[in-house]
Computed example of a mutant assay.
Amino acid sequence: MRAATPSMYADVLTESTLRDVVDLAVRLVEFAGALIIFVGAAWAFVQFIGYGTVGLRKWRGTPGAEFGFNRIRLTLGRFLALGLEFQLAGDILRTAIAPSFTEIGQLAAIAAIRTVLNYILGREIEQERREIERLSPQTSAATPGTAP
C-alpha cells in the first residue's frame, strides 16, 4: 500500500469541488439562520396572541402588566440576534474561497449592517432584561440569606 501524497488529493479536492462543498455549507447555515428567525417570530406571535386575548385588555393602567409583553420582546430579540449570527456566518463562508475584491466589499458592508443590527438588538435585549427584573415580583422580594 502506497503512502498518501498531496498530489493524490489534488484531483479529489479541486477548486470546483471545494466551491460546491462550501456552497452547500453556506445554504445549510443560512437556512438554519432563517429557520431560527422564523421559529422565533412564530413563537412570539403565538405568545402575543395568547397574551393579547388574556392580558392585553388589562394592560392599560395596570402597574407591571407590560411584564409579559416585555418578556415576549426579549425572547424574540434573542432569536433575531442568533439568526443574524448564522446569516453572517453564511456570508463569511461564501467568501472563504478565492474571494474577489467585490465580494470582500460586499461582505464588509453586510457584516457592518448585521453587526450594527446585532448591537442594537443586544442593547434592546439588555434594556428589556432590566425592565423585566424591575417588574418581576420575585426579584423585588429580598432573597433569604442576602443583605437588603
Rank of each mutant, 00 (worst) to 15 (best):
R19E: 14
R19I: 03
D20V: 06
V21C: 05
R27Y: 12
R27K: 15
A32V: 08
G33P: 06
L35I: 00
I37K: 07
I37S: 07
F38M: 11
A41C: 10
A41T: 02
A42E: 01
A42T: 11
A44F: 10
Q47G: 05
F48W: 14
F48K: 13
I49G: 07
G50L: 08
G52S: 13
V54H: 15
G55F: 13
L56T: 00
L56W: 01
K58P: 07
T62H: 07
G64T: 08
A65N: 08
E66H: 05
F67C: 10
N70L: 05
N70M: 07
R71H: 13
I72Q: 01
R73E: 05
R73C: 08
T75F: 03
L76K: 00
G77Q: 03
L80A: 00
A81P: 09
E85I: 00
F86A: 05
Q87G: 06
Q87I: 05
L88V: 00
A89M: 11
T95H: 05
A96E: 08
S100A: 03
Q106S: 15
A108M: 11
A109W: 06
A112Q: 06
R114V: 09
L117C: 12
N118A: 14
I120W: 15
L121E: 01
G122M: 03
E124F: 08
E126Q: 04
E126F: 04
Q127M: 11
Q127L: 12
E128A: 04
E128N: 10
R129P: 15
R130V: 11
E131W: 07
E131M: 05
E131V: 01
I132R: 00
E133P: 11
L135C: 05
